[in-house]
């Protein structure tokens, strides 16, 4: 009897705590999502649309640009996300060491990039990497290159610029999460490990990484979604060019909506491709987690 009352209390409290968020999300997400689902079955231009059944999905199958956007997005994801997460982890661990000098200064400086606005830092990077820009001038005066590198006019180098820009902007951001999480790690575990003579890198892999696992998972999911939605940087630095070399899914959706004949139905369909990818990734991640639990 007492048990059920406690259960009911838990239920009431559970709903009470999440209700404000759910109500707001219900209003500001559910309707737009239903609209976008409905739109993905419509074909036509702007306000002239009609029910098209699966026509948009058929269009997906033949869309070479979509494939290119997908490929670019995956390249950004595979190269950029691991670099950033490893860097952020290394920074966080180094800065969490109480014996490090100038710790506060380093921490502050490494955080700095994430206070800039996306638009501001994008135009900053664009001007730094322009043909006569500061980066090329520095490289040439150091005799590292003999001719200016075509940073923004060559599809390969443009990808390098985008990856550098995102890494610059977001590494400190991820570091915040790791540093905050490291504070919750009990320092005595490290002390015990140190006394037992376990070397630094082993402490990193065997204590720090497992302890930070929830946060690492969290930032990885965020970075995945962030890469899939990569837009502001692309739009402000390369607009998807040169030669579609930096076209991402979100940039493509934007082009479909605002630069080309506005086909909202098809751009909604492409948006759902992103959701489908995330769903598949989540299922994979869920299955891996389950297998591991079984194995353990």
């Amino acid at each position: 009897m007492a048990q059920t009352r406690l259960d009911r209390n838990e239920q009431i409290n559970g709903w009470a705590f999440v209700m404000p968020a759910l109500v707001l999300l219900g209003i500001f997400m559910i309707y737009p999502i239903l609209w976008s689902l409905w739109m993905s079955f419509q074909v036509g231009r702007g306000n002239n649309f009609s029910f098209g059944g699966l026509a948009n999905i058929q269009r997906l199958a033949n869309d070479a640009l979509l494939v290119q956007a997908l490929t670019n997005t995956i390249i950004f994801f595979i190269i950029q996300v691991p670099i950033m997460i490893v860097l952020a982890l290394l920074f966080a661990v180094a800065l969490n060491d109480a014996t490090l000098r100038f710790r506060g200064l380093f921490r502050t400086i490494l955080f700095l990039p994430c206070v800039t606005s996306l638009i501001a830092y994008s135009s900053l990077f664009k001007s730094m990497f322009s043909n006569d820009g500061i980066i090329n001038q520095a490289l040439m005066s150091l005799h590292l290159v003999s001719a200016p590198i075509p940073w923004l006019t060559d599809p390969f180098w443009a990808k390098v610029v985008i990856i550098s820009a995102i890494t610059w902007r977001w590494t400190g951001y991820n570091m915040i999460f790791y540093l905050a999480a490291l504070q919750n790690v009990d320092k005595s575990i490290y002390e015990a490990a140190r006394i037992d003579g376990i070397p630094g890198w082993a402490r990193f892999w065997n204590i720090t990484v497992p302890m930070l696992k929830p946060v690492i998972l969290f930032t990885t999911i965020l970075s995945t979604i962030g890469t899939l939605q990569l837009f502001d940087e692309i739009n402000n630095i390369t607009q998807g060019g040169p030669g579609n070399g930096t076209m991402t899914l979100s940039m493509y959706i934007y082009n479909l909506t605002f630069r080309m004949m506005p086909s909202f139905g098809y751009s909604a369909t492409v948006s759902w491709v992103i959701v489908a990818i995330v769903a598949v990734l989540s299922i994979i991640q869920f299955m891996i987690a389950r297998d591991r639990r079984r194995g353990a």
Binding site: P32, I33, S36
Partner: peptide, 11 residues
């Protein structure tokens, strides 16, 4: 979590 991945342009 799934909703988090919907691009804003679509909504």
């Amino acid at each position: 979590l799934l909703f988090l991945s919907i691009p804003f342009a679509a909504l």
